[in-house]
Design a protein around this nucleic acid. Structure first.
Lengths: 238, 238
DNA sequence: CGTCTGGTTGATCTAGATCAACAGGAGTGG
DNA sequence: CCACTCCTGTTGATCTAGATCAACCAGACG
C-alpha cells in the first residue's frame, strides 16, 4: 500500500447493507475489497473537481462530503451533503461526462475509490447492481427537486430551520435531561452556502431565532427544545 | 377510438428521433403506435397529479406541459417545463412510486399515453431503451441541479432574464428586421411560479428592464434587441 | 351589459444583502 | 512566552430587492 492508504474489508463495512453494493455477492464483494483504494482525506481536499473526467466512483466510509457547483461567473453553492454510506461520482460514471460538481471534504473523511473499469465489470455481470444505481439516482433526483421547490417558495429563515431539522434527524440525540441536541458538522460559511445566504445573515438569524426561544446555540452545539413541536407552524410562513 | 381520441402513427412522429423511443425498431414502434392512446388536452387539465400511482408514461407531441410540485403547506412551484418531444412520468414508472408532481397542461397539448405494462414489455426485450431512459434521467438531474444552483445564487432579475434566454433558444426567431423575437407561451402568473417570485414583481421587473433598454415587451411578444450581447454582464450580478 | 380573469401600478414594509469593524482562538515562528 | 497572522464568527449601520395588499384597468365571454 502507498503512503496514506488504509485497508478496509468491504465485508466488514457498516454501510454494506444500505448502499447499492448490497447487490453484490460474496465473490464480487471480495473483488471490490481488494481492488478499491481506501484513503483518509482532510477538510479542504476534494475527492474530484467539477470538470474532471469520471475515472471512478467513491464510497464514503466516514465523514462528510459536500457537492459544490460553481457557475461560469464564479458563483458557487453547496448542492447537497453526503455522509457515510453514500456513493458519489456515479453520475459521471453513468453519463460518461465530466463531473458536474466538486466533491469537497468538509470533515475528516475516509473514502474508498473504485475504478471505472471495475464498476463496468460488475455491472456487466450483475444487473441488480445497475438497478441499485438507478434507484439511487431516482432518490437523488427526488431529493433535489424537494430542495429546489423549497428554495423557490420558502424564506431563508424557514430553510435554515429545515436544514437544522435535517441535521437533527441524521445526527441528533437526547442529552442527559432528554433535551434534543445536534452537533452541527459544518461551519457557518458552509451553512450559508447550503442555503444560499450570507454568513452574516446566518448569524443574525441565529440570534433572532434564539430570542424567540425555540432553540439555543452554543457554538456548533444546538439544543432544539420545543422547535420539534413548533416546526409545523414556523415552516408555513415563507 | 373513444371520444376525444386522436390517432397518430409513431413512425411519422416528428420527435421520434430525438426521444428515447429512437431505441425502438420498426416492429416495436408499430406495437407502440397501435397500443398508445393519443389525446388533446386543454390548459388547466392535468395529465397526472402529484400522489397518483404511475399507471403509464406520456409522450408530448405538441404543446407545453409544466411539472408542478406542492408541499405539505400548499406552497407550489413550477419545477420545469416540458415541450414537444419530451417523455414525462417515467420517473414514477422507474421508481414504482406515486408521481412526485403534477403535470399541468399550459398550452393546448396533444400527448400519447403508454401503459405501464407495455413499457415493461419493451424494456425487457430492448435493453437500449433502458439506457435511453437512464440518459434522460441523468439529463433531467443535471438540468435541475443547474436550476437549483441558480436559485441559490442569482437574483430574481437574473433568473428572469435567464428564463427569457431559454425561451428564446427554444422558440425564438428573427423578425423581418432581423430583430430577435420570442413569443412567451405562458402567462405572467406561471412565469412567476417558475422563478419563485410574485406576479407583481415580474411586472415591475419588466418595466425596469425595459427602461434599461435591453428588451421590449408587447404583451407576450418580447423583442430581445441587444440583450443577447449583454447577457454576460447582466447575469454576473446577483 | 355584468362578471371574470390576467395584468399593471401605487404605497408600504421587511428580509436579507452588503461592507466594514472587531473579537476570540489557533497556529507559527522568533 | 510573546507577537503576529490567519481564520471564523459576530455585530453595527445602511441599503435595496422584492413581498405584500389593495386598487384599478382592459379584454374576453356568457
Amino acid at each position: 500500500m502507498n503512503r496514506g492508504e488504509l485497508f478496509h474489508n468491504c465485508a466488514d463495512c457498516p454501510s454494506r447493507r444500505t448502499t447499492e453494493w448490497r447487490a453484490l455477492n460474496a465473490d464480487e464483494l471480495a473483488l471490490v475489497s481488494q481492488a478499491k483504494r481506501t484513503r483518509a482525506h482532510e477538510p479542504g481536499e476534494a475527492l474530484y473537481h467539477q470538470g474532471d473526467p469520471g475515472v471512478g466512483i467513491y464510497c464514503i466510509q466516514s465523514g462528510l462530503v459536500g457537492l459544490r457547483r460553481t457557475d461560469e461567473n464564479g458563483n458557487s453553492s453547496l448542492l447537497r451533503l453526503c455522509a457515510a454510506g453514500t456513493t458519489i461520482g456515479y453520475q459521471s460514471y453513468l453519463s460518461k461526462e465530466p463531473h458536474k460538481n466538486t466533491a469537497e471534504v468538509l470533515t475528516p473523511t475516509t473514502a474508498c475509490f473504485i475504478e471505472r473499469s471495475l464498476v463496468s465489470n460488475l455491472l456487466s455481470t450483475n444487473p441488480r447492481l445497475g438497478e441499485r444505481f438507478l434507484q439511487h439516482l431516482l432518490d437523488d433526483m427526488s431529493a433535489i427537486e424537494d430542495d429546489y421547490a423549497r428554495s423557490l417558495t420558502l424564506s431563508v429563515k424557514s430553510r435554515f430551520l429545515h436544514t437544522l431539522m435535517v441535521f437533527y434527524e441524521k445526527l441528533g440525540y437526547r442529552d442527559e435531561n432528554g433535551q434534543p441536541i445536534v452537533e452541527l458538522p459544518i461551519k457557518r460559511m458552509e451553512l450559508a452556502d447550503l442555503i444560499g445566504a450570507q454568513p452574516a445573515s446566518i448569524s443574525r438569524l441565529i440570534r433572532k431565532v434564539q430570542a424567540e426561544g425555540m432553540l439555543k446555540f452554543n457554538d456548533r452545539r444546538v439544543s432544539l427544545r420545543d422547535l420539534l413541536n413548533r416546526v409545523g407552524s414556523s415552516m408555513v410562513a415563507r
